[in-house]
Design a protein around this nucleic acid. Structure first.
Lengths: 337, 337
DNA sequence: TGGCTTGACTTTACCGGTAAAGCATAGTAT
DNA sequence: ATACTATGCTTTACCGGTAAAGTCAAGCCA
């Protein structure tokens, strides 16, 4: 129950606490004799430096805060799996927070991390819309911040690890066009930059092929399955018929497929579907989903490296790292008819 | 870049630091006037108590260490998902460590947690065989410990959250017997209590049906897919033929199925297979796997509650919480022939 | 021989809080 | 008028470390 401290070691050895501290910090001005006596005692008592006390004086906790919206989503866990080894070898601990997709809880978690004096925070794609002020407070306090998959909060100067959303749209749309589809609709996301860029990619890919999408080919909504379902219902009434749809994310794509099946049509025979995100289980659906994904693990790895480089060396100016997206072809975008 | 401290607040208000501290800790001996002046200043400056400094004096970090063998295994994440909400509402942070199934790294992580003065540690089913000494050091230091899915290290006095391994064996075996199987073999795990208990359940269930398993019906090995594969190869040579196999865990069961297919036989037509653990994707296999599982989330929840109750109130004596296992029937144990 | 280094520590101050004890002032009891 | 008791603060010590400055004896140079 009683902690071993430097005081105890110093006492038993008849030296000062500072001497013990110096040995453990490899200072040069300690004789070999004393050094080994101290080291032996440390070994004997199984002494471990008290990280809390060190943090207080050094003003470094060697801890990173990780804020994710949901633990049960495989891609956030993959992000953490990308962060963990990098942090671990450099001696940093990870303080894990789940915001449960709730801006209020996210705010509370960020405040908590501020109080705990974490050296850095990785904020993974949460809906932090209201929490700009807390983020600013954090950075002002000297905490390095990295945002993953978010490109808003322009006032917050921090590193960002993103994918190339326009390219996401181009990849998906070109793939559908190459597969012989002509009427390629788009189920857009909510009004956030990422969704808008995916839409732009869709437009660009069509334009490159001389296709000018009529207004009815696009329905904007949200990122949920139900949004995709509703949007597809609308798209199915368009004449001439749409024969493919690029959805802003995977849940929306799943909703779209449901609407297609409900209308008695087949995927991909009547309508091809492509999503974005490569969520787990996407290949286990009734019709495995073609999607555009990117390595979450790389995102985590880059985020951790940006953070730690900033902490250890001189802080680079805020950087944007782009993780390239890639097309994952499954059955939902198979050949026409 | 500059931290706001109580000193600053006290200075601006012309009161002592202790007064500020007392306000924030709701001490009674502060006048309403002073109290609100302090509170107003706290609000104005966006002040947050420095948790590091508090931890040092209070000798409480309000942090739990979580050690899991692998982040990418869904059940460890589920355990964390069970812990997180409990810890979060009580104001505890989670320090996440992954041992990557490596006893050396696990040891290092535990040492790290000791240095960081975490109030409690949840140790999820890692192969900590060699690390008893660190665990003892931790508990001696006053850290509460909860082990999940491990019932060894008897010298370490701590709470344990387990499942009923004998019942696991009984459930699996009875299910196979009820499905009309007569020659129910067992692929046992490594020589650890959990595997032994599952084996005992298998024996008991057979005995209850008047079946006396010959020695060739059991092959013991490890928990890996390759172990299951090798074991099944052996079992397929047994005469009279075995028509079902209960495997000590899911990976072994998957290995067993591979061996069965390789021999030109079918699952479940020729040999029925049941595993243990309900790993993710178990239902996405070529033949979805019947298995015995239990709620990892409940395990996490119970672990967190045991820990925090011990920390907040008076420490209960080490407890054993048993999470009931349940059978999950899929196709690999379907009807004979 | 006195002054100057150098090596090997020790002393002191501080990190940002909290708890216990101390200390005026005013009000109450006697 | 004297002693007692709240009330509302402040002073002091401490948590377990680290860094900067100080000490002190031995060795060196001129």
């Amino acid at each position: 129950m009683h902690q071993t401290t430097m005081k105890r070691i110093a006492g038993e050895l008849g030296v000062s606490i500072t001497t013990v501290s110096k040995v453990l910090n490899n200072h040069a001005d300690i004789s070999d004799a004393t050094r080994s006596r101290v080291l032996a005692k440390v070994e004997e008592l199984g002494y471990q430096r008290n990280a809390v006390a060190r943090s207080l004086t050094l003003r470094r906790t060697h801890t990173l805060g990780i804020v994710i919206p949901d633990l049960m989503h495989s891609f956030f866990v993959e992000i953490i799996a990308g962060i963990e080894p990098v942090a671990s070898v450099r001696g940093y601990g990870l303080l894990l927070c789940s915001s449960s997709e709730d801006a209020g809880k996210e705010r509370a978690e960020l405040e908590m991390l501020r109080g705990r004096q974490v050296d850095g925070v990785v904020l993974a794609s949460a809906n932090a819309s209201g929490n700009t002020d807390v983020l600013l407070q954090l950075t002002r306090q000297g905490t390095t911040l990295v945002m993953i998959d978010r490109d808003d909060h322009p006032s917050v100067k921090c590193h960002r690890v993103l994918t190339d959303d326009e390219r996401v749209g181009v990849l998906a749309t070109s793939h559908l066009a190459d597969a012989g589809r002509r009427a390629i609709a788009h189920i857009g996301g909510p009004p956030i930059v990422h969704a808008k860029r995916r839409e732009k990619g869709w437009r660009d890919a069509l334009k490159a092929r001389g296709i000018k999408p009529p207004d009815e080919w696009i329905v904007r909504g949200g990122f949920m399955e139900s949004d995709g379902y509703r949007a597809m219902k609308r798209l199915l009434t368009v004449r001439p018929k749409v024969d493919a749809v690029f959805c802003a994310n995977d849940p929306a794509a799943i909703g779209a497929m449901k609407a297609i099946w409900e209308a008695g049509l087949r995927v991909p025979d009547d309508v091809a579907v492509v999503g974005v995100g490569d969520i787990a289980l996407g290949d286990l659906l009734r019709v495995p989903l073609t999607t555009v994904g990117w390595s979450r693990r790389d995102q985590g790895k880059h985020a951790a490296e940006l953070l730690l480089n900033g902490l250890e060396g001189e802080g680079d100016p805020p950087q944007r790292v782009i993780i390239p997206p890639r097309l994952i072809v499954r059955e939902s975008s198979g050949p026409h008819r």
